[in-house]
């Protein structure tokens, strides 16, 4: 099972920083979602918060794993997690990254489909994970599946924008479209390093827009309360 991607040498280090930034932005969004859930008891806010928290954890794991590989910390970490060798560590890292990201994305996907049944969610989640982990190329299947789910999420946000025609809904739509294209680029990054870089750049654009939107929402609220 292939668990590696081609990363241009010059990009090593930058990928770690970017992934850490993505982890931070998604964590901030998650925090605000949970805070507003506490105020409003609106279930969708809690699910949205959980989705972004899960995605944040996945980016954190990805960044940490890349950091460990880059700075040759893998032997120490192997001892810590009782992994036999680098392959085992990579195995653990990739699997946890895939599980957390898929869980978060599936929550968003199910919210857009308005499916509220936890049993159906659990069943589909297990089927998706099985399809990913039993495939010949885990990362390829993971990026393919996540692209398909993101396509559905983008269609939801397109409808949201067409219904409301507001700047905030447009920003979120563009953000998720960037995220979708980023994921598609990662599919091709398995054979060519340039796509790995482009994927990260597109994700930076996506999370940047999400952060800008959140800051606009917060600053609008500040102005109104003064």
């Amino acid at each position: 099972m292939a668990n590696f991607m081609i990363i241009p040498t010059w990009f090593l280090g930058y990928n770690i920083i970017l992934e850490a930034v993505f982890a931070l932005i998604t964590l901030i969004v998650s925090r605000y979602a949970f805070k507003l859930y506490k105020l409003s008891e609106q279930r969708q806010l809690m699910l949205f918060g959980m989705a972004f928290l899960s995605i944040s954890i996945s980016y954190f794991i990805q960044s940490l794993l890349n950091f460990a590989i880059l700075f040759n910390l893998t032997e120490d970490i192997c001892h810590m997690v009782k992994a036999n060798n680098l392959n085992s560590l990579n195995f653990i890292g990739v699997y946890t990254y895939v599980i957390f990201f898929t869980f978060g994305l599936m929550l968003l996907f199910f919210m857009t489909l308005r499916i509220k049944d936890a049993k159906i969610f659990s069943l589909i989640f297990l089927i998706v994970l099985s399809a990913i982990f039993l495939s010949a190329n885990i990362l390829f299947m993971f990026y393919l599946v996540s692209s398909i789910m993101l396509l559905s999420v983008c269609l939801h946000y397109l409808k949201n924008y067409l219904d409301k025609k507001q700047t905030k809904t447009l920003l979120v739509l563009i953000a998720f479209v960037f995220l979708l294209f980023g994921r598609v680029h990662f599919i091709f990054a398995l054979n060519h390093g340039t796509y790995y870089v482009l994927g990260h750049v597109l994700e930076l654009g996506a999370y940047g827009l999400i952060l800008i939107n959140l800051l606009r929402v917060l600053s609008k609220n500040e102005q109104k309360t003064r």
Binding site: S40, R43, Q44, R114, K164
Partner: peptide
């Protein structure tokens, strides 16, 4: 006090379905 913030957030992320 935070109603407008809740509405702005839920509208922008398409979370405003009646549950």
């Amino acid at each position: 006090n935070k109603y407008k913030l809740i509405i702005e957030f839920t509208e922008s992320f398409g979370l405003n379905e009646d549950e």
